[in-house]
Computed example of a mutant assay.
Amino acid sequence: MKKIGFSGTLDPITNGHMWVIGEARSIADEVVVFLSENSSKKPKFSAEERKSIIDLSCAEEGWDNVQVVIVKGDYTARAAKKHGADCLIRGIRTTADFDYENLIQQTNVDVLQGAKTIFVMPPRDLGSVSSSFVKALEGPIGWNWIMKKFVPGPAYHAWVMSWLRAEWESLWDYAHADVPATAHADEWFARLTGATAYGGATRHYHNLDHLVHGLCEIRAWAANTAPEPRDVDIVKQAFWFHDAIYEHGADGLSNEEGSAQLWLGSSLSHDMADAVELIRATDHFQEQSIAHRLKHIMLSVDLAILAQDDEVYQNYARGIRQEFGHVDDVEYVQRRCGVLRHLCRKAEAGLLFGDAYFSEHYNERAIDNMQREMARLAG
């Protein structure tokens, strides 16, 4: 077969969609993805953004025979025929899918004189993966770690950036800010999420995932303890900046103090003092000298990764090892186990999470995770 089409809204494209495209490539010389604008739906990403995500996802796989066409004001089956594709390919996951797709197939051919449909069945591990399924994951603690398993890298990055963007705009009240203020905030958002900060290629743990996770932890803490809204904003401000600078072997200032100075230089707030103290509290050399009322919240949020489920914790541990890739295995095991033993002792004494909310929910799990990591490193 020379050309085959695959159609959908693809908001976002998932690993299930990618599997279908892969199947299409196995039976045709060329695959055309017909991306429906569909004005009746309210997609998260514009058609152009979705096209870019699909192009990047296919390029990441090395697929150079996949073309993406945005369909505006036409049926995708009819658009497929116009582009020389006599067949569309669709994935069938359930009997309900078959009943629905069979009806669409009949309409496409008998009513629209459009392309016929070939049906393929995805493997079991992709049987429940759909755009709506992925969208439903967003929100609770750990949602980003879960979503990452179900979408290609470019789709995941776009989704995380969209989520972070909404968090950032809410923090700085874009709805009521003037144009110069939002432009200034835009510059700092781009800087913090870009290659010189959390979006850096060498950031294997202190990266965008870490940023999302921490902000979700702050959300959960606020929802369960009802602090003053201003206090929530202060912790968020500090968390956005606390690992903005992360350089091994940097001369002069510590990473934490460098991040604190970056915050002060941003001039994003009328009152910079509270957040800068919380950023400095994440530096163990400065922590003891800081008595800020929110210090234990900030430190608990930063350490909450230690108490996640095993899969997330192992991803975290691998990320830390990659960030210290310049350290040989023997030295790394010695240094890492030293850190973990110190943190375990604090947890066993009930001092790891200085805030009661985090201590109640996370302390025991953190001890278990760290002990297992030490055992793996020693083995």
Rank of each mutant, 00 (worst) to 15 (best):
R376T: 13
L126P: 08
R203F: 06
N224R: 14
R341D: 15
V33T: 12
W188H: 06
P140I: 02
M121Y: 05
K3M: 10
A220V: 11
W163M: 08
N65D: 12
E49V: 08
F133E: 01
N363G: 10
S300E: 14
R335M: 14
Y100I: 05
H176V: 09
R280H: 09
S289K: 11
S131E: 09
M147Y: 02
D178M: 04
E256K: 00
S267R: 09
E101A: 01
M147H: 05
E257G: 02
V160L: 03
A85G: 09
D110E: 14
D74H: 00
H157K: 09
A238P: 12
T95Y: 09
D186N: 06
A349Q: 14
I118H: 05
L112I: 02
E37N: 07
A273G: 04
D328E: 11
S132E: 08
K2G: 10
N65S: 09
G16W: 01
H292P: 13
A260D: 03
E257Q: 08
L303Y: 07
A183V: 10
V179K: 15
A223P: 03
D310S: 07
Q288R: 14
Q106T: 09
Y316R: 02
E138D: 10
L211Y: 11
D231G: 04
E287F: 14
M272W: 14
Q288P: 08
C87R: 14
A366R: 07
P154V: 00
T282S: 14
G73R: 11
A201Y: 03
F98Q: 11
I367Y: 01
F98R: 13
H204L: 05
E360Y: 00
I320G: 11
L352C: 13
L137Y: 04
I320T: 04
Y362D: 10
D99I: 15
I297K: 05
Q237D: 00
V330Q: 13
A197L: 03
V66I: 13
T14N: 04
G252E: 09
P180C: 02
F241R: 05
S40F: 00
V312F: 11
P227F: 06
V276C: 11
C58P: 00
F119N: 04
M18V: 10
